[in-house]
C-alpha cells in the first residue's frame, strides 16, 4: 500500500467516480461537484495566465492602447446585468459570428468538398493495379458508388422513393458499416484507457502489481 496521502486521495476519488457505474450516490456527487469546482478554478487561472496577462494587461502596461478597443467590445458582455443596455451583448456575439462564419465558407468548401472530390478521383496507379485490395481501380469505383449513394441519403427535397430510395438504402448500408468500423476501432482504444487506470490503482496505490 502506498504511504503517499496524495496517491490515496487520487485513488479514492477515482473510486468515487467509478461508483457511478453502480448508481448515483453521495460519493459520486461529492467527486462530481469537486471536479466542477476545481476545473472552473483551473480555467480561471488558465484565462488569467494565458489570455488576460499576455493579451490585455501586458499590452496595456506597454501603453499599446489599441487593446482598449477589443476590451471595450468584450466588456459589452457585462451589460447582461444592465437591463436597459442588455442588447449590447449582441455586439461581441456578432463580431465573433461574422469573423468565424466568413472564414468558414471557403475553408469548408476546400476541406469538405474539393479535397473529398479529389480523393474520390481515379489516379494512374489505380489503373495499373485494377484488383489491388486497397488502391486498385475496383476499390476506387466501389468508393465512388459508396460516396454517391451516401450523398443521396442526405437528399432532402424529394421523398425517398424509387431510384432515390434504392440508392439511399445502399448509402445507409455503407454508413452503418463505416460506423461499425469506427465503433470497433474506438472500443479497442478505450479499453486501453481503462487498463491504464486499473494499472494506477493496482500498481501505484495498493502495490498489487509490481
Amino acid at each position: 500500500m502506498s504511504t503517499n496521502i496524495w496517491v490515496w486521495i487520487a485513488a479514492l476519488l477515482s473510486l468515487c467516480i467509478f461508483s457511478y457505474l453502480y448508481k448515483d450516490n453521495p460519493a459520486f456527487r461529492f467527486a462530481e461537484h469537486l471536479f466542477t469546482g476545481l476545473s472552473v478554478g483551473y480555467l480561471i487561472v488558465l484565462y488569467w495566465n494565458n489570455y488576460a496577462l499576455p493579451y490585455i494587461i501586458t499590452p496595456l502596461a506597454d501603453k499599446r492602447w489599441i487593446t482598449l478597443i477589443p476590451m471595450l467590445i468584450g466588456m459589452m458582455y457585462l451589460f447582461r446585468f444592465v437591463p436597459k443596455l442588455n442588447h449590447l451583448i449582441l455586439i461581441p456575439i456578432a463580431i465573433s459570428l461574422g469573423f468565424w462564419n466568413g472564414m468558414s465558407i471557403p475553408l469548408t468548401i476546400e476541406a469538405d468538398v474539393l479535397k473529398q472530390v479529389q480523393g474520390t478521383m481515379i489516379n494512374t496507379s489505380m489503373l495499373s493495379n485494377i484488383w489491388h485490395p486497397q488502391n486498385g481501380l475496383a476499390v476506387g469505383l466501389m468508393v465512388l458508388v459508396g460516396v454517391i449513394s451516401t450523398i443521396s441519403y442526405f437528399y432532402f427535397s424529394r421523398e425517398h422513393k424509387g431510384v432515390l430510395r434504392f440508392s439511399s438504402n445502399i448509402g445507409i448500408w455503407f454508413v452503418m458499416i463505416g460506423f461499425g468500423a469506427t465503433f470497433g476501432y474506438t472500443v479497442m482504444a478505450r479499453v486501453s484507457l481503462l487498463i491504464a487506470r486499473m494499472q494506477f490503482l493496482f500498481t501505484d496505490w495498493i502495490h498489487l502489481i509490481k
Partner: peptide, 28 residues
C-alpha cells in the same frame, strides 16, 4: 458534386494528361 464526380472519373479514363489536369484542378 455528382456531376463533378462522374465527369471527373469518366474523363480520367481518357488519358494520363486529363487525369493530371483534373487532380491539379482540385488541389487546394
Amino acid at each position: 458534386i455528382y456531376l463533378l464526380l462522374l465527369l471527373g472519373v469518366g474523363l480520367s479514363f481518357l488519358s494520363p494528361g486529363i487525369r493530371e489536369f483534373i487532380l491539379n484542378l482540385l488541389t487546394v
